[in-house]
Design a protein around this nucleic acid. Structure first.
Lengths: 334, 334
DNA sequence: TTGCAAATCCAAAACGTTTTAGATAGACTG
DNA sequence: CAGTCTATCTAAAACGTTTTGGATTTGCAA
């Protein structure tokens, strides 16, 4: 059995109060007792129980990560992994831990996501990969639990969000392509139940208008965010518009799928078809030809989400909507 | 403040003991009191505090996931994500939760990984992405905490492992290539500090001998597990052995890197160069040409690890070494 | 010496559960 | 009717911390 504060107190010949206060750096404990207690705690290899502490302090210093993509299609991980990395790293810095709350957990226990968080007494929660039609969405907004959503503009009393400015990102793409002289630009979007899809589509549209190019609904094709979806999207677009000279894909994975499909048809990029992706995942730099894309600062997204949820938890900060700036990365496909 | 067992007891007009026993399905509580208690608990939306329960039951029903790759190179996620998925899913089924314990957490707190687990009173731990020269390795083996390591054959009193039979997997590759008539087969291995690299190299070697082909050290090149590493590896191999007709890469990502490099040189696969990868990540099926590879049952790896650690925790099962069977997936590059 | 402030220390309560060891009441046995 | 058994309930202890409110000691001025 692990050594408790009582053991330390006994060995040091002081009360458990003193041990607690000595170890936690309170000022009302003498210097030599403090040293003695510290030494003995060290010797006994004492580790204060986080669970006992949580009980009495009424906070677990734990935030949940709710990710629904963990269960279904897993195309999301190219994007999510680095967000997770940044998030976890910053949380650790701030002294918080991360526990996984995929929706499967909730479903299998037949309790709602919120109930799970309540039972575990989580201090806050970060939500990622959630769709507009996801039933959890309402729960997140309504919940009094401090929460931050990634890639979905939910703002309420206890809910903030972090995402990239996708409208602007898509506009950057169109401006870039128009600048290269393209007049007919297609768009393979992600599924309509992602908030980012709506924004990127709006950016695409506004970008076209600003560039003096007309918007044509038939030049847009909606797919999922997978390789296959990208290939299918391009195929469909080329059927309707064989004279298209550039295509914008709403994710790098889809763009790479499109690139492969183009290669199969013997269409060379960028000579015959310019291609632009979105996200700047690692693969974008290593595809052949290297993919022009919009960079999202993924690990920063994670960090900002972590910071916001912590601020809400400990300083009762009011939730905010954070929009990160996208960045055009020009490589070989344009 | 959340509603406690005391509130329920008061509202139901019984003792807290009875509430506890009613809700936990004990037999020494009358049917009508049970119904009443259940109803009231429901009405008050009572959620028993997992932390209070953990304290008194002396178990947190939480296992830690220690993954070192979360912090450094992130090539690992193509492989790890689905392992994580299977692991988390099975753990949830078994009533356990997963908490992230990347090494950054430990480092930033200046406590060892084990101390972290002790403080949080984790019931067990699963380790992934660890290297042979990782300092944590010793801690894991020595620790009395039930642990399961993925892709590293560590077996001790409290430590089991789950991995694919990599020797066999590599042999399958060589047998397949030899069967296709290849006489000179190169090997781009992962870094030497991965246990899987050693095994795959051994399988490569034994496979060659069994096929009656000689083993030649200069036909092996060691890289990291990245796209770039694969490209560099192939480049190096082709310089020494321009007459090589097939190359086996120790990961799909490296193989895809090699494929790209080959395309740049105008070398067609499989006509001029057969290529085989390892892992069967999603990308393998969508590369052009589609990649022949060895499938690892990633989500099963996660599940088996979950099951083992749970068995060790609650049934004091003795740890085991689990070797999963690899599977040759023949596609277009051979 | 007395009084008082400051510096140290500590007993006990509290956090929200589970579990132990009995208590109470009703039913049955003889 | 006494005794025993069973069914149902509960008071209190325990888990390992933090915190509150005070107790004790020390040092120093009056």
């Amino acid at each position: 059995m692990p050594v408790t504060i009582r053991d330390v107190a006994k060995a040091a010949g002081v009360s458990i109060t003193t041990v607690s206060r000595a170890l936690n750096g309170y000022s009302d404990v003498g210097e030599k007792t403090r040293r003695k207690v510290t030494r003995i705690a060290e010797e006994l290899n004492y580790r204060p129980s986080a669970v006992a502490r949580s009980l009495v302090m009424n906070q677990t210093r734990t935030v949940g990560l709710l990710v629904s993509e963990l269960t279904k299609e897993r195309a999301g991980h190219y994007f999510m992994f680095q967000v997770l990395y940044g998030m976890h790293d910053r949380l650790a810095e701030l002294g918080y831990d991360l526990i996984l709350v995929s929706t499967t957990t909730a479903r299998q226990r037949l309790v709602s996501y919120l109930d799970f968080c309540m039972e575990r007494r989580l201090d806050g929660v970060i939500v990622m990969g959630i769709r507009l039609d996801d039933p959890y969405i309402q729960e997140v907004v309504d919940s009094p639990l401090p929460s931050v959503v990634i890639d979905l503009p939910l703002l309420s009393d206890h809910c903030g969000y972090v995402m990239t400015d996708n409208v602007h990102g898509a506009k950057l793409v169109i401006r870039h392509l128009a600048g290269r002289g393209h007049r007919k630009i297609g768009f393979v979007n992600g599924h309509s139940q992602a908030a980012v899809s709506r924004d990127r589509k709006r950016g695409y549209e506004e970008g076209l208008l600003q560039a003096g190019l007309g918007y044509d609904d038939t030049q847009v094709h909606e797919a999922d965010f997978t390789l296959q979806g990208g290939a299918d999207g391009l195929k469909h677009l080329l059927q309707c518009h064989p004279d298209m000279t550039a295509v914008f894909f709403a994710s790098d994975l889809m763009a790479i799928g499109g690139l492969q499909y183009a290669r199969e048809l013997g269409i060379r990029s960028p000579e015959e078809l310019a291609i632009v992706g979105y996200d700047d995942i690692e693969l974008a730099e290593f595809s052949t030809p290297r993919l022009t894309t919009i960079r999202q600062k993924r690990s920063e997204m994670g960090m900002r989400a972590a910071e916001m949820v912590v601020a809400m938890m400990k300083d009762h900060a009011t939730p905010q909507g954070v929009l990160l700036a996208p960045e055009l990365v020009v490589r070989d496909t344009t």
